[in-house]
Write a protein that binds this DNA or RNA. Structure first.
Lengths: 227, 227, 227, 227
DNA sequence: TATGAATGAGTCTTCATTCAT
DNA sequence: GATGAATGAAGACTCATTCAT
């Protein structure tokens, strides 16, 4: 079973997905540069005003190019959305291992990974919300490609949990759901930013949420009643 | 402090918000009937195709009326979205107390409330996703009205947690965040339906998630390391 | 030749025109009452917001009746416009002879008629502008009916001028154009209200304009040059 | 005081107003060309069918372009109306000095100016009526911009009158009102075209109207009665 | 007679996309 | 490769008019 220890950074983007977006330009380096330029702006604008609230014209203008040029590198507006979401998700997946790698024991690595995840989300709140808002605007094939990326990221968290279980730090547990609980509270930092921002920092947020999961909630009496 | 025990059903909707949507028709009963008709269709179509992917004409057609009639009962398309989201959120808030009211002790009521919440969401997956997707399409004042409703629903869960603490069933805990963890995993059932549906039932989902929160995760050795 | 002295009040409205507007109601008295009600409101609203800027709904509301009722007394919205304009023009034609009738000599009667005309216009500025703005919205037959009324009013002024000429007070002159000059400056009081209102009263306006027409403009030297 | 002699052609249009209409296209020459194209059609159609009776589609079609293109050069339909009216008024203001400039003495220049004004109006009857009909459809700020243009044109006529007074050709008189009488009879040629066209030419019309103003109307006896 | 809810044709306007330069 | 003017399909919204009650 692949553990977090074995999880090393992968090529930035699974080729299948990138290739699904076609370009009229051949020069690969140029394609890459232009797309990055466009996608960066798109993430910002889609995040702020939504997919439908953002015009291709606005993206091109902000990127300092003509509208027509966008269509040299993307088949249509939806392609831009797809690559924008994929780029966001990939940036998450890439930064978690880096942060976790620095710690020494499984629990510390687990905590580092969760904190890293929360911090990436904090730095990209609009982008995170974007993925939630607009993924459904995409056709099934592309939604699936996005789900695949989500699963990859989840697997990183799951691996850390398994490592902790294997190390005897966690009792055997519902790994998949626990990973989802962690991911969901991390996302909550973005989805409910209006509620949390201002009341605490991301670090505090991550700590308090982890505390809830790691420490027993039931009193001895409560445990009896459970049974 | 208002506890769950004191929480009784409230008038279905704070008047301020509903009244913010103006109608050209006077007959209150008719307004109510027509709006329900329209909102029901809107929730379905917005949920399925998104706000921008749904035309007013499509709503009217599916509701068996003319386009013009929609505008007799709503100022504009955005009004329909607002009432649709509000209606969804209100249906959540209303059903929780009913389900919880039937149980006898605080822990059972807490569990009942969480299960009820998950079940409402399960019955309205598209609608739940809708609230996440499209709230940002609304102007600030209306987003605030929606947040206010979310907070009211959260308060119901929080009250049950507090009752459990007061009854000595839960150790004193981070009530607000715990409530959010519960709400987020419940929402995850809708937001990540593609992942969970088919692998288990809502009831199992609720139980397994509750188990993660209620039972100790750390082993004695893990607890030592935490300190 | 018909002189102003012979000009007596006529039936309020030439029958041909009124009858052109059909009603679904038989009771003549009721038809008359309802139409007056509606036309009064229409003159006000059309005058203020223009024909296209005024909805039938707005007219009905202001008149304290249902939209449907308007259509019991008028074939369509254009009928209302037609009767509104006709009513305005008729009110002009009716009031001039009354005012002029009180004076004793031709010049005084002429002056009284012009002043009366200016005063009626002053009291109905919006309505006067309305006739200018919206007559062209009507089909030719109705425009002709309106022109006929205008000509009737012009004839009143012309008759007074002819009386003055006949009495040796005016030199033989271009009666028709003089009448038009008078009518146009009177209309200017309404058409250019933004310019004149506030700088003088209607009475002063009429007097100063009449002075321009009655007193020689050219100096003896100017007269030589003219020749 | 600026006299007619000093009145030289000005830049075709006060920049403030033209610039108030925004374009999505940058190329100034193209903007100017397209706008002229559109405005020319608009003056024709608005003049014939009225503002509300003319669709943007109809304008675009007649101008040989797509509907969307109109919106590249105008913010909305009202912008087109505004520029149409302004264009008409400016064409008046521009042609008067040219015509007047050719004559040698003040009285001849005055006559030439009035004749020129009448001729411009004759050549643009629909457009002249348009300004009367639709100015009220514009918001106050724009109505004010239009009034300012009217005043500028009036000033041209007034200057000629003052020159005649200064030259001892006219007795000191009510310059402002006299200018308005001239302008109003000139406009009458358009507003009452149904009445005048066919009975005389514009030149005759101008001459006969001027005669009324320049020659004494009252007989000696009439003058005594006036006193 | 009177009501006013319902209709739906018609308009303005936006914007993704293309293509001549 | 890059530009941005031009296209035109599509959608929100209005409002004169009808008709069942």
């Amino acid at each position: 079973m692949a553990t977090a220890r074995n999880t090393r950074p992968r090529p930035p983007l699974a080729p299948r997905a990138r290739e699904a977006v076609t370009s009229k330009v051949d020069d690969a380096a140029l394609v890459s540069r232009r797309r990055s330029q466009i996608v960066a702006v798109a993430i910002e604008l889609f995040g702020k005003r939504g997919y439908h609230g953002t015009t291709v014209r606005a993206i091109a203008e902000r990127a300092g190019m003509s509208t027509g040029l966008v269509y040299q590198y993307f088949g249509d507006k939806e392609d831009v959305l797809f690559l924008a979401i994929v780029t966001v998700l990939d940036s998450y997946r890439e930064r978690i291992p880096v942060a976790a790698g620095e710690a020494s024991d499984p629990l510390a690595r687990f905590r580092a990974a969760v904190h890293a995840y929360c911090r990436v989300i904090d730095a990209n709140i609009d982008a995170t919300v974007l993925a939630y808002r607009e993924t459904k605007s995409l056709p099934k094939a592309r939604r699936d490609a996005i789900k695949a990326r989500e699963i990859e990221t989840n697997a990183l968290i799951e691996a850390h949990i398994r490592d902790c279980v294997a190390a005897g730090i966690f009792v055997p547990t519902d790994v998949e759901l626990l990973a989802y609980q962690i991911i969901m509270f991390a996302h909550a930092w973005a989805l409910k930013a209006w509620h949390f921002r201002g009341t605490m920092t991301v670090t505090q947020f991550a700590d308090r949420n982890l505390a809830l999961l790691l420490h027993p909630l039931l009193t001895p009496r409560g445990r009896r009643r459970e049974a």
